[in-house]
Nucleic acid binder design. Structure first.
Ligand SMILES: [Mn+2]
Ligand SMILES: [Mn+2]
Ligand SMILES: [Zn+2]
Ligand SMILES: [Zn+2]
Lengths: 142, 142
DNA sequence: AACTACATTATAATAATTCTAAACTATTGA
DNA sequence: TCAATAGTTTAGAATTATTATAATGTAGTT
């Protein structure tokens, strides 16, 4: 269980001022056992549930984007209407359950490393991400 | 070079009325040698350049989504701010050039098939997509 | 403490997307 | 033929998502 002073230190290291808005958002995002996936909307709900303080929507966007730029969050885009952030910033792949709209981390052993045989000339590979969309097996699907 | 009557037939087959808006959009999208990638904005510009008729933005959205649902277009989402549609609806992977914001089809031979060893229990795999983000190799990057 | 330069917040503005009422079109049957 | 009508499509209006910027806050300097 991380303490507030840990987040304050961490924010300072990143060159971000440890304002109370940011510390609160850190608590909601990073004060937990496991990494997880969330949308901006999820986060706004979590903040209003867990915190007494109101944080403006623009500040939530600012903070999430600041953390993303600093490498503390990763964005995973499913389609133009569904975009998630991931507190697991290591290189990993995802299943997306189209029935429940749930994004699920692939385990290391679930998928073999992607083998790229030929890259665009003069370019360096920054990331390789696999998205596996799944849905109910049986039954009459829409 | 496809003729308008081809598009009219095709739309009818799909169960969509061949309105002049839709036939015009078909001409812009499908009357060409190679498949390509576009954003809604790109498409609006192409329509206003190539056509004398004005089509409302809502109709462009409606039509693109109708074509997507019918399997005539595929959506490729890069991040929440960049979403492309692809007239190549076969299963294939992509490079995304972060310098130019260009989406490029992977050739069959550029990448080995993705080997998924363990899927979510009770779910069927609907699609597997790899996105490889690349950028300038050399120089001082931001 | 006052001044300054910069960082941060959050309101106001803008951009992206969808809702829905009006305009069309196909079908039916008199 | 050609209303009547049920469904489809369009596009202006409304909503939602995101960002720009003015106001506020903070830290360093004298
Ligand atoms: Mn972003
Ligand atoms: Mn869509
Ligand atoms: Zn993840
Ligand atoms: Zn493509």
């Amino acid at each position: 269980m991380a303490k507030n002073c840990d987040f304050i230190e961490k924010l300072r290291e990143l060159g971000l001022r440890p304002t109370k808005q940011r510390v609160n958002i850190c608590e909601v995002l990073f004060n937990r056992e496991k990494t997880f996936h969330f949308t901006i909307n999820d986060l706004v709900k979590m903040i209003s549930e867990k915190m007494n303080q109101k944080i403006s929507l623009a500040t939530v966007y600012n903070t999430v984007h600041a953390f993303e730029k600093k490498g503390y969050l990763k964005e995973i885009s499913i389609d133009s209407h569904k975009s998630y952030f991931d507190t697991n910033t290591s290189a990993h792949h995802h299943f997306f359950d189209e029935d429940t709209n749930e994004l699920i981390d692939c385990d290391e052993n679930d998928i073999d490393p992607v083998n790229i045989k030929k890259n665009i000339t003069g370019k360096k590979i920054n990331s390789v991400e696999v998205l596996i969309k799944v849905a109910s097996d049986n039954q009459n699907q829409k």
